[in-house]
Structure formats: structure tokens, C-alpha cells
Design a binder for these strands. Structure first.
Lengths: 248, 248
DNA sequence: CGCTGCCTTGATCTTCTTCAAAACGTGTGG
DNA sequence: CCACACGTTTTGAAGAAGATCAAGGCAGCG
């Protein structure tokens, strides 16, 4: 119930359009599915990638456009969105350095199934679909790791379907906050701070509800002492209570 | 508006607990990710599989149980379900011969994320997780095909999230009927007949709504001349109108 | 200091769920 | 072959959850 309201998030991401080339190798080595490679092979893989900087809010690609490349987040946060005819967007995922997105399929003619947008200033590594498939063919361990990650994402998506189908907005928001805290949480003086600039609207898009409903539920959470929050930031202050609420 | 109401679905599946061993090889060769294998290798793969018959309604495994195996539908229909605390189940998928389910991860200790239940009498091929991974290691083409299928399923799950988040029950049901018609549809004298015994409750579980709401919407579709239906069966009679309604 | 965009809160309205009961079909056993 | 019994489907009425509409407040920034 404290009245701390200034944003505690420090965005120390790269300036837009400035990815350090020197850091690429180090970043690639931390990508889960390249971690299996010996240094020599990793260096070869590195050469196939290009890098590109994006400003916060900038679009990386659009749903429906032809899909040419696979992307890897090197720095910053990237959100994946699907649009709807009514203009209500749905956020499918929020990515952190080391995660990939874009097209996996080797089919030509494929279209992007979602829109990718930089949530913060971001540095993105890209590789042509065909180049990436050469890597998959050369290093079966990489293919297995990609499969493993894709399976986990499928599981997460199906879990989301269960949630939206059967649980209240309150439960879903509690659940979403817990996931975000796991992925982006960092201990700070306001509690377990979620280190991404997240608006009420973002939360709404992640839980399948409206800005207003998300705001109402968060206000209630705050009254109950479960969270601290302000403009574009949220911190979890009572994780156990949130878990009880999410019913997990 | 005709009054044809007798079930037109003929279930000519194997009797329960009786899978013909002779047909296994033929079935495996039609599994998309084994289709890439030459006959000799396929025969070797075949030896690693076991078969088991299930009666309609019988459970194959339960959500939360330890996951030991990967499964392939040889004959019949299998549904994948997630349960909820309120008792409202969510159907994630309805599988047809050639499709796989169960555990892909090589992690021990993994638990089933969903329940698998035979929707009709069914014959299921099973293989130990570790055995399947030997196959993946030996035949990279198989691993790539599995990755491709998993990606498509991820895409389908994410599309479902968009639907449930943003569209009305009416739109979602129209969309679900179209998908079912694509996968299970067969031309018949009542229209494009969906060849699975599907109750209103099944449809509700697939679209994230209740039995009653599903029934109401289907009644309306029937009045509009879009479908023909009866107890546990549905046929699409006006595909174009349904597509218009689904807004695709 | 005022502008812009985000957040909050209230009031109303729509959609869908819930509860209840009746009608129907399908398979069964007489 | 018919009648009964069971599970499925339909329909109505009431209620709840959440969406929508609207207005005001607050933070951060130029």
C-alpha cells in the first residue's frame, strides 16, 4: 500500500540501430540450441547471421507478409502479436535475449503467422531460412534442441487455451503475472520486479481481456497487497498469495 | 431444413483390442514423418513399436501421469484433453490415423500435459521415449519432419488463442466446424459429413464454451441452412456461408 | 506548465453461463 | 417389432462476468 509510483525499471538496452558486432558470438553461444555446438562450429554458424537494431515500438515483420528469415533476440524484448478484425490484438509471447522467432518451416511461400514488434530498443540477429536449414542439417543436435523448445512452446500455448477457456480474468492475470515474474522477475526494493515496460493494455492482450478489466483486477491485487505497480511497470510483492489465487 | 436426423456416420473401425499386426508397416509408412524413410529402415523402425487396442471412451493416459512413450494413431480417433478444476474439460486436438501424440521430450521425469482418450475404438502404436530418440538420432529427416509438424501444431494452438480471446462463440464454432470438415469431412447425401461421433459437448470443449451455448448456435446454423445435424453427428451443407460467418 | 498517453473508476449493456425442464434418438430387452 | 430407458439435445428464464462507453486523474516530457 506504499505510494511508491516512480518507474523502477532501468532500460539499459542498446540504443536503436546499434548492435555491437563483437558481442554476437557471445550471444549466440547463449542461445539454447547453439549451446550444444563446439566453438569452432559456433564461429561458422555466426558468420551466417546478420544483425539489425530496432527502436522500441518498431515492427520487425508483419503478420501476413512473406516469411524469409529466422530471428534471434540478442538484446532487448520482442513481442509476438496476432491481430484481429475488431482491432483487438492478442500477444502470444514476449521474448528475451537468446530466444528465436520467425519462420522455421523450409517451405517457400510461407507467410508470417504473427507480427513481431520490438518492445524495447532491441538488437536482432537474422538468418535466411535456407541458411538456417543448412545448419539444422549439419548439426542434428541443434535440430533436436529446436524441437525441444518448440514442444515447450506448444505446451505453453495449450495451457493458455485451457486458461482462457475455463478461468476468470482474475485467475488468468494472476497466472500471467507469475509467468512474467519467472521469466523477467528481478528482486528489487519494490519486490519481484518484472523487467519489461508493460502497460495495462499489454497485460490485457496477454490474458485475452480488455484494458479496463485488466486495470480493475490489478487495482484489486494492489489493494490486497499482492503487487506494487505504476505506469508501465509491475512488481510482485506476495508471490504465494498470487499462486493461491491462480489456483496452481 | 430437411428432417433427416438418423446418424449417417458408419464406424467401421477395428473392434477394440484387436489391431492387425499385418497392417502396422503399411500404417507406419503413411505416418508423415516416417514417409521419408526407405523401406528397409522403415522395417527396422517398425520393430521398435508395440500395438494396443482401445475401446471407444477408454483412456490411453492421464494428464499428470509420468510420460514414458510416444503414440501413433493407427486406426480410429483419439482426443487430447486438458481438465480444469471446475470440471470443464478443454479439447486440444482430435487425431486421425498417422498422427502422433504423447511425449517428445527426452527428459525423464516428464509428466503428461494432457489426457488422451479414444474417441472411437482405436488401434494405437506405442514406442518408448528412449527408443524413439534413437530413431530421431539415426534419421535426421524424421526429426525434421517431427519439427515441422510440431511447428504447425504450435501455429494452430496460437490461432485458437486468438479466436477464444477475441471472437464470439458463433464465429469460433463456425471456424471449428470448418477445420473439422477439412480434416474429417467426406461428401455424403447429407452434405460434407464430419466422420467422427461429435456431441454438442465435444464441440463446446473444442471452442471454449458450454454445451448449451454450442447447442443454441448449432440450432441457429441449422435454421440458416448452414449445417445438417443430429445426435453425435454434423454435416456442413453451406461451406461458403460458414466461411463468411467465421470471417476468414 | 501544459500536452500526451496511460491509468482508473463508474454506469450501462451485451454476451454468455447457469439452472431447470422437457423433447428427442438410439439402443435394448421384452 | 414395439416400448422403455438412457443419454443427448433443445429451449427458456435468470443471473453473472466481463465488455463497452464515458469521464476524470495522474505521470512524464518537451
Amino acid at each position: 500500500m506504499t505510494e511508491r509510483r516512480k518507474t523502477p525499471i532501468e532500460l539499459k538496452h542498446v540504443p536503436a540501430h546499434m548492435c555491437s558486432t563483437d558481442l554476437r558470438l557471445e550471444i549466440l553461444s547463449r542461445v539454447p540450441f547453439f549451446a550444444v555446438l563446439p566453438p569452432h562450429d559456433l564461429a561458422k554458424v555466426n558468420q551466417r547471421f546478420h544483425e539489425k537494431g530496432f527502436s522500441a515500438e518498431e515492427y520487425i515483420y508483419y503478420e501476413g507478409d512473406p516469411a524469409f528469415s529466422l530471428f534471434v533476440v540478442a538484446d532487448g524484448r520482442v513481442k509476438l502479436i496476432r491481430h484481429t478484425v475488431s482491432g483487438k490484438d492478442v500477444m502470444l509471447d514476449l521474448l528475451t535475449p537468446g530466444e528465436f522467432f520467425g519462420s522455421l518451416s523450409h517451405l517457400e511461400q510461407e507467410l508470417n503467422a504473427e507480427t513481431a514488434q520490438a518492445q524495447t530498443n532491441a538488437c536482432i540477429l537474422t538468418i535466411e531460412k535456407s541458411e538456417f536449414h543448412k545448419i539444422l542439417d549439419s548439426f542434428p543436435g541443434v535440430a533436436m534442441a529446436v524441437l525441444e523448445i518448440t514442444s515447450r512452446r506448444l505446451n505453453a500455448a495449450q495451457e493458455m487455451i485451457r486458461q482462457i477457456s475455463a478461468y476468470s480474468v482474475e485467475k488468468r492475470l494472476a497466472f500471467t503475472l507469475l509467468r512474467l515474474a519467472d521469466k523477467f522477475g528481478k528482486n528489487s526494493d519494490v519486490g519481484l520486479l518484472i523487467e519489461v515496460p508493460l502497460s495495462r493494455d499489454d497485460l490485457a492482450q496477454m490474458t485475452g481481456t480488455t484494458t479496463e478489466s485488466a486495470s480493475r483486477v490489478l487495482s484489486q491485487f494492489h489493494k490486497q497487497g499482492l503487487i506494487e505497480s505504476g505506469r508501465q511497470w509491475i512488481a510482485v510483492t506476495d508471490r504465494l498469495a498470487l499462486e493461491r489465487l491462480a489456483g496452481d
